[in-house]
Design a protein around this nucleic acid. Structure first.
Lengths: 204, 204
DNA sequence: CATCGTAAAGAACGAGCGTTCTGTTGTCAA
DNA sequence: TTGACAACAGAACGCTCGTTCTTTACGATG
């Protein structure tokens, strides 16, 4: 009667659990399976109740349906909680650390997908800038850069990640490691792109 | 009879066209629809032929099937080679760009979304490990860790990002900065999670 | 002109799917 | 004790899906 659906999205702990199960499943399989399969995923025996759950997640903005009726995730589905208090902070922390704003990592790091590439970092010539061997550089392809930018330049037919600087009117490429020499290219300097982000994955 | 399927994946221009149509569709809808819908996507009238195409794309490594028989994309489905012209000789970099907008990076850094939190890093106590002030730590919440892991621990009601180590049978938290002291917690050590990734965004 | 292979169309079918409806259980308030 | 409601379980049904099989169109080959 009172046509308010009181089903709360994340205030409801059960639905939060179902959502996280679905998120983990999707991370594995990149698809949302049938209601029958979701029964196993959720630990539930009733298809109709699974549908009720997904309907609520849709209302809460975590799922959508295609014109064909297929369930698909939304941006909110992929968003990760951002802990409120930074690692070490001066404030005492309440356990509700996961109660903050959400965001999607890709959107944070990539403004223009068509111009952005990921390049694995090789070597430790930029280690003093906190860029390690094995890190992945997020690079926005363009030909101009500003002094102080970390750029991907092409020197002697090789990619090089260095800080762009100027010395006596000449552009130079400065490594962040005293063991490496400053590169002073004769003639023109070909810039491939500018470093806009960095990704590191720790082995587990 | 000769049971070799000669169907070539990308050497076949038709299949390449079908693949890119499917990639575009997936970028829009994040799902692979039914054969009937794919008929429209491909501009084809026959379901059986659509199945034949997907079977070939599977054999070529672009698609997989779940145990339930659902089609799902593979990593190769998302991969994109860098333009030949800009690849310098002698350096066989396999650069892959972000073709779809979502979860290329997300997927790389996050295995279990439900247990993963993002925490902004404050301070420079881990700077020798290449973790800077303002970086965002990707943390997988769990209570146990191994020696050598970089962990988020709770010390005196504060989050702390340190390397977990052991000294004379006692767990200690080691900073990566000589200006900071080693933390030797008396009694138990509460671990919030383990660092599994790091994100840095450069101002533009 | 016959044959063959490729690329597709189309029909036929049973299994499984999503949907709806009704039934069951547990909890809590009155 | 009763009633109400939330949280499921289970059945029933029509329709769509994936699969398989047969047929067609057509260019190349010989």
């Amino acid at each position: 009667m009172t046509d308010f659906d009181s089903a709360t999205p994340e205030s409801n702990p059960k639905d939060a659990e179902y959502l996280s199960r679905l998120q983990d499943y999707y991370a594995d399989w990149k698809s949302i399976p049938s209601y029958a399969s979701l029964c196993e995923v959720f630990g539930i025996a009733s298809k109709s109740w699974v549908k009720a759950i997904l309907d609520r997640l849709e209302k809460a903005g975590y799922l959508e349906r295609t014109p064909d009726g297929m369930w698909i995730p939304t941006k909110q589905f992929f968003a990760r909680p951002l802990a409120e208090s930074s690692v070490p902070a001066g404030m005492p922390i309440t356990v509700s650390a996961t109660q903050g704003e959400h965001f999607v990592i890709d959107e944070m790091l990539i403004d223009t997908p068509s111009k952005t590439t990921l390049i694995p970092v090789k070597g430790d010539s930029m280690i003093d800038a906190g860029i390690h061997d094995g890190d992945v550089a997020v690079v926005e392809k363009r030909m101009n850069a500003n002094i102080g930018d970390i750029v991907v330049a092409i020197v002697d037919n090789e990619f090089t990640l260095k800080t762009l600087d100027k010395e006596r009117g000449q552009f130079i490429l400065r490594p962040a490691n005293q063991a490496y020499p400053v590169i002073r290219p004769q003639g023109s300097l070909e810039i491939f792109g500018v470093l806009t982000g960095l990704i590191r994955k720790y082995r587990r």
